[in-house]
Computed example of a mutant assay.
Amino acid sequence: MRAPRLVLPRGNLLDLRVAAPATAPTAAPASDPQARWRDLVDRRLPEAARARPDWPARLDQCFARILLDNACGGPWRESVGAPAWANLPPERLGLAIELGEAVLAGRADLDLLNRRSLLWRGRGRAPAAPDRLVASGGLLLRRWQRGDDAPFADLNADPAVMAHFPSLRSRAESLNEARAFDRRFAADGFGPWAVEEAGRFVGFVGALRMMRPMPFPGGERPGAGVEIGWRLARTAWGRGIATRGARAVLADLFERCGVPAVVAYTAEGNGASRRVMERLGMRPDGTFAHPAIPADHPLSRHILYRMDARDLREPDLPGGSA
């Protein structure tokens, strides 16, 4: 077998790439995510594209752009240095690989993924979205501002707030998450809204397209399902903010956005979030092991809730614990 030769990249995603040997290629080892990624975008997806004239991409750098942008929640260069395959956190690279595998298996809409990527890059017309929603009691849900960065980072570093997440967020991770949240509006017309109470940022309530393949009916196709969720500072607990905000979000999703159904899920032990889901009228629909959490982790097991547009309840009397 001839030794592989180094060639200069054709696109802007890789600094160096290794040309394929003359003999038939073998699959990259599952234990090496970087090798899997390069095999996926350099060989497998371009080869599959030859039989898919309906796909919007043909070249390796186009597939890499689409998958990386969707894994990062925006143009990938805004959150990671080049080459992305070497610098992405393992969890983000793993998500990009999952998306590519879903495209190959026919479980992900490459047109949808490409459209979101191009919208983030200023190409195409973004879905219209209001700047704010007003929930009952005058609670304000609005688009994200730079002044939210510090309180959001503090919220994500609070062990009580993050008790049902595998780890705390660093300030850099919080900043990337806030930017990705706001970019959801440009790609999808909806997203997680920043919550403001009495002029003060207290967290978020909103909805996201589920971009990770999830192990429950309706979650297998990345981008097809919509999840509603919330995360609030401790100072905002116990006053019905999550419930009031989520009702306003659900009404907007079902009416303006035409979303027919949503899901919500949380770790089985998160009783406070489960009570909010039940007050909203969501129905429990079994449990599942979260694919981003190790199977032996105490937070792995999640409970799933569902809601259709016709199930949206009128607001209850004031009160509640979230």
Rank of each mutant, 00 (worst) to 15 (best):
A49E: 01
E197S: 11
I97T: 09
H290C: 08
V18T: 15
V161E: 09
P213A: 07
V263S: 05
W230C: 00
R58K: 07
N87V: 10
I241Q: 04
R183C: 03
G73A: 07
D109H: 08
T23G: 11
P25M: 07
V18K: 11
A172L: 12
S174T: 02
A84M: 13
Q61C: 09
P33D: 09
I228W: 02
R116C: 03
I303D: 01
W237S: 02
P89H: 13
V262L: 00
L13C: 09
D131M: 10
G319H: 05
V195M: 13
R50E: 11
P213G: 10
P46W: 05
G286W: 06
A102I: 08
R143N: 00
L312F: 08
A82G: 12
W76K: 04
E177M: 15
P260K: 14
V202G: 05
A272V: 02
A180L: 08
R125V: 14
G219M: 12
A84T: 09
A242P: 10
D154F: 06
T266S: 05
R17G: 08
L250N: 12
S136H: 13
L250S: 09
E227Y: 03
L208E: 09
M214N: 07
E314S: 14
L99D: 06
P25D: 03
N87W: 13
V202H: 11
A178C: 13
A35F: 08
R50C: 04
R107E: 14
G271C: 10
F288W: 06
P217Y: 04
P21S: 02
W230E: 01
Q61V: 10
D32I: 08
R5V: 15
S321T: 11
R65N: 13
A267C: 05
L118C: 03
A187R: 00
P294K: 05
R36D: 03
D15A: 12
R183T: 06
A289M: 13
P192H: 03
Y265E: 04
L93I: 15
A207D: 03
P90N: 14
G137Y: 11
G74L: 10
S31Y: 10
A24M: 08
L104W: 07
G240K: 09
S273A: 04
A153V: 10
S79N: 03
R10E: 15
